[in-house]
Computed example of a mutant assay.
Amino acid sequence: MPGERRVRMGRIVGVSGVRGWVKLESWAEPRLAIFDYQPWLLETGPGEFRELRGARGREQGKGLVAELPGVADRDQAAALIGTPVWVPRAALPALPAGEYYWTDLEDLEVVTVEGAALGRVSHLFETGAHPVLVVRDGDRERLIPFVPGQYVRSVDVDDGRMVVDWDPEF
């Protein structure tokens, strides 16, 4: 597991009942898909992970609840509140050409079509209309709409580079 890429897929946010079930926040789409990606890597401390296989769960109200192997009572479940849930990047299915997982775009070098360096992708966020790239270069931060063909001209994950049609002064 050292050096293996991981993707944060959710976190444990509470307990459900007395038999060790947990309430789960999922960032998978659809949210129940988090159970399709196994093993889970529970982040027990900075850079420390506990592998967990066989988590299962269901929707309950507006959230998810999960049964975790080895967690048999409410006290054990309560000790996990706040624990991030990661999965190995390799557990995610391959995507068609031209589609990307956000995690694959993070840390790409971003340059303009003229070759001006803008920085690196820090992260993305959703606005409703389209995702937005947060590109950082030192203290400078740029917000660039992730609109392929219009602002994003090319993405080369293997080469670690993204070309954008963007004014470097903006």
Rank of each mutant, 00 (worst) to 15 (best):
residue 121 V to T: 13
residue 106 E to N: 04
residue 122 S to K: 14
residue 36 D to R: 03
residue 92 L to E: 02
residue 94 A to R: 09
residue 79 A to E: 04
residue 73 D to R: 08
residue 126 E to P: 11
residue 15 V to A: 11
residue 133 L to E: 09
residue 3 G to M: 11
residue 155 V to E: 04
residue 148 P to F: 03
residue 41 L to K: 00
residue 109 E to D: 08
residue 113 V to R: 07
residue 159 D to E: 15
residue 108 L to W: 03
residue 15 V to N: 03
residue 91 A to C: 07
residue 116 A to M: 06
residue 162 M to L: 12
residue 99 E to L: 12
residue 144 I to M: 08
residue 139 D to V: 15
residue 143 L to C: 06
residue 110 V to C: 07
residue 79 A to F: 06
residue 96 P to G: 04
residue 131 P to H: 07
residue 75 D to H: 15
residue 68 L to F: 03
residue 12 I to A: 14
residue 128 G to D: 01
residue 6 R to H: 07
residue 72 A to W: 13
residue 38 Q to C: 06
residue 108 L to D: 00
residue 91 A to F: 00
residue 157 V to E: 12
residue 1 M to C: 11
residue 59 E to S: 10
residue 71 V to A: 11
residue 14 G to M: 12
residue 32 L to H: 02
residue 101 Y to H: 01
residue 51 E to G: 07
residue 84 P to K: 08
residue 41 L to T: 01
residue 121 V to E: 09
residue 10 G to Y: 10
residue 63 G to F: 08
residue 3 G to H: 01
residue 151 Y to H: 11
residue 153 R to Q: 09
residue 126 E to Q: 14
residue 7 V to D: 04
residue 13 V to L: 11
residue 129 A to V: 13
residue 112 T to G: 00
residue 10 G to A: 13
residue 100 Y to Q: 04
residue 150 Q to W: 10
residue 92 L to D: 00
residue 58 R to C: 14
residue 103 T to L: 09
residue 43 E to I: 05
residue 121 V to W: 06
residue 101 Y to W: 03
residue 153 R to E: 13
residue 7 V to Y: 05
residue 34 I to W: 00
residue 71 V to D: 10
residue 169 E to V: 07
residue 167 D to F: 09
residue 161 R to T: 14
residue 88 P to I: 02
residue 49 F to M: 08
residue 51 E to T: 05
residue 12 I to G: 15
residue 58 R to M: 15
residue 45 G to T: 12
residue 146 F to Y: 09
residue 78 A to T: 13
residue 82 G to E: 12
residue 148 P to L: 02
residue 160 G to S: 04
residue 139 D to Y: 10
residue 74 R to T: 09
residue 128 G to R: 06
residue 148 P to N: 03
residue 130 H to S: 08
residue 41 L to C: 07
residue 54 G to P: 05
residue 151 Y to V: 10
residue 120 R to K: 14
residue 68 L to W: 03
residue 75 D to G: 15
residue 54 G to Q: 04
residue 149 G to E: 09
residue 93 P to F: 08
residue 82 G to H: 08
residue 4 E to D: 10
residue 148 P to H: 00
residue 39 P to K: 01
residue 75 D to T: 15
residue 115 G to W: 00
residue 34 I to Q: 01
residue 101 Y to N: 05
residue 155 V to S: 12
residue 90 A to I: 01
residue 166 W to E: 00
residue 23 K to C: 14
residue 163 V to S: 03
residue 11 R to Q: 10
residue 72 A to P: 02
residue 75 D to F: 15
residue 33 A to D: 10
residue 88 P to H: 00
residue 91 A to T: 02
residue 116 A to F: 05
residue 139 D to R: 13
residue 69 P to T: 06
residue 81 I to M: 05
residue 35 F to Y: 05
residue 149 G to W: 03
residue 139 D to I: 14
residue 107 D to P: 02
residue 128 G to K: 01
residue 127 T to W: 07
residue 68 L to N: 05
residue 158 D to P: 10
residue 106 E to T: 04
residue 44 T to W: 01
residue 67 E to R: 07
residue 150 Q to H: 13
residue 106 E to H: 07
residue 53 R to F: 04
residue 38 Q to M: 05
residue 40 W to M: 07
residue 93 P to M: 04
residue 102 W to C: 13
residue 98 G to K: 00
